[in-house]
Nucleic acid binder design. Structure first.
Lengths: 206, 206
DNA sequence: GATATTATATGAGCACGCTCATTTAAGGAA
DNA sequence: TTCCTTAAATGAGCGTGCTCATATAATATC
């Protein structure tokens, strides 16, 4: 059974669309891989020729959304904005694109967005992180700063991860609380960047 | 079949000890609930008379560790310490107690430590959060500040959650990287508290 | 003691994500 | 056309976390 590349791409797209629809209406836990396969018109096992796990399908949906968010940010940004405003806009644009995925985004948060660097540098989450961080770097440069150092990136990602995690469980009507947190976080981060450097270290207790 | 309260408590303890041992040697995924049950000397189904889910067992182990960490912190703290140092010590004492659980701690991180408030206020994670936050409040008061407001607590928990998440995946030999992040985080947080305008010092130094 | 009551223990069984030996069919060689 | 090769599709089957109808035994009542 040899199938054209075209057919395979079409099947892959059908899986992604089907999954998105089912997850939106039923959530992550109640949508089974058998559901997805049957609605995509393939056998249960065939699904796993296209994606290694159920989570990987969700991760692809997330990666697509965030990919288009990077472009959307470049269009939306204003030249007069402050550093905090640009960082705020960057993240909030991502959240806007992720909005339809919010109800099941939690299923990939911990595996895909961990604040420590992933063990597997070839997967989607690392690409996504690199793209996001790259934009952050260019924002900083645009505001007359050096490219961020390792620990600065780690601190940024820690905050970003925390915000995503907050957003997922945010019970306020339109997630206003998350945006308040985002505002404060970016203010806090920029201030930390500025006052950083004249720091003394604690001894680690081990 | 009526069994004394004593027997039930003993069974419960056996489940917890057995689980801890198996998780340490095999990890979360490869330890099955059937393994736990059989090593604890009960039937597979009986396990779920004692804990609603596999994760709940882990959560109990975590809660016990963090509970003893609260007491350990009170003993370890020094009177001359700065606010940052006390906050650093509080969290690092928790990490020290959690150390043996690190390899499987990730399995309860997202459900038990979400930065947004839990929907279920009666479960272990809410107790744990309340205890931790209570200590944070008393630390702040001890350093001449008011009890933290809602958003201040949320920002704190966001950082704490992020640090735990970093720690779980920290690849550095003794998780030094986490302690460097912790140091920076507390510095950043305290600085934010000060410049935020929402916290007033009782005794400003001038 | 004998019997009834009932809290607890039990394990067969369910639905799940995922695997893998087998089947199917498209493209090449004759 | 006929056979061969092989990439992709298939679905029975595995081990999992967890449920639930049933079995069991400790206590209450007589």
């Amino acid at each position: 059974m040899r199938v054209t590349e075209e057919t395979k791409l079409a099947t892959r797209s059908r899986i992604l669309e089907t999954t998105l629809g089912l997850l939106k209406s039923q959530g992550f836990e109640t949508t089974t891989t058998r559901d997805i396969a049957s609605e995509a018109g393939i056998a249960a096992g065939t699904l796993f020729n296209y994606f290694p796990t159920k989570e990987a399908i969700v991760m692809q949906l997330v990666a697509d959304a965030l990919d288009s968010a990077e472009a959307a940010f470049e269009k939306r940004r204003q030249d007069g904005a402050s550093l905090e405003e640009d960082l705020f806009l960057h993240i909030s644009t991502g959240l806007r694109q992720l909005r339809p995925l919010r109800s099941f985004f939690g299923s990939v948060l911990e595996t895909g967005f961990s604040p420590a660097r992933s063990a597997n540098p070839n997967d989607l989450s690392e690409e996504l992180r690199t793209a996001h961080i790259g934009t952050v770097g260019s924002i900083l440069v645009r505001h007359g700063r050096e490219s961020p150092t390792g620990i600065e990136l780690q601190m940024y990602w820690l905050l970003y991860h925390g915000l995503l995690s907050f957003w997922v469980a945010d019970g306020s009507p339109k997630q206003e609380d998350t945006f308040a947190m985002l505002d404060q976080s970016m203010r806090m981060f920029v201030n930390w960047l500025d006052t950083n450097g004249k720091t003394q270290r604690h001894n680690t207790p081990f």
